[in-house]
């Protein structure tokens, strides 16, 4: 017979293991701050934080396309952008973009996950 006491202990153990794994995920997923010039093929599939000026931007369907410029340029995309994303990403606005570096048609691009205005 399994007593309630042991069920509670098993549940608590799950919670502790879950908390440890959450720390592991946070460490794994933590993005590193970089300038656009530092992004090369070695940064592929890595998550980065980039602060730059929006050089151009347009929305097509469910995707927001924009170019970031901090002295070097990189193309960026945001899938299913929210109203706030479209508000932040306007020409000459300064933004902080968190996203993954990927390759598209031979060039690097930033697949944005989070867009915030630069302070």
């Amino acid at each position: 017979m399994l007593r309630e006491y042991w069920l509670n202990r098993i549940a608590l153990a799950c919670g502790v293991i879950g908390a440890v794994l959450l720390f592991y995920y946070a460490w794994l997923a933590a993005p590193s701050t970089a300038t656009i010039g530092q992004l090369d093929k070695g940064a592929l599939d890595k998550k980065v934080i980039v602060q730059a000026r929006v050089d151009s931007a347009f929305a097509k369907g469910q995707t927001l396309f924009f170019t970031l410029d901090d002295g070097n340029k990189i193309k960026a995309v945001k899938m299913s952008p929210s109203a706030m994303d479209k508000f932040f990403v306007q020409k000459n606005a300064f933004v902080v973009v968190t996203g993954k570096v990927q390759e598209y048609e031979g060039a690097l691009e930033l697949v944005a996950e989070k867009i915030e205005p630069a302070e």
Partner: peptide, 28 residues
């Protein structure tokens, strides 16, 4: 809400475990 990425497997597992712990104790 979030573009599915391979490392999110750890997020799903960890959050599920924490929620299971809370839920089991709360349900009792």
């Amino acid at each position: 809400l979030a573009v599915p990425q391979p490392e999110m497997l750890w997020l799903f597992i960890s959050v599920s475990l924490i929620a299971m712990a809370f839920a089991a104790l709360a349900t009792f």
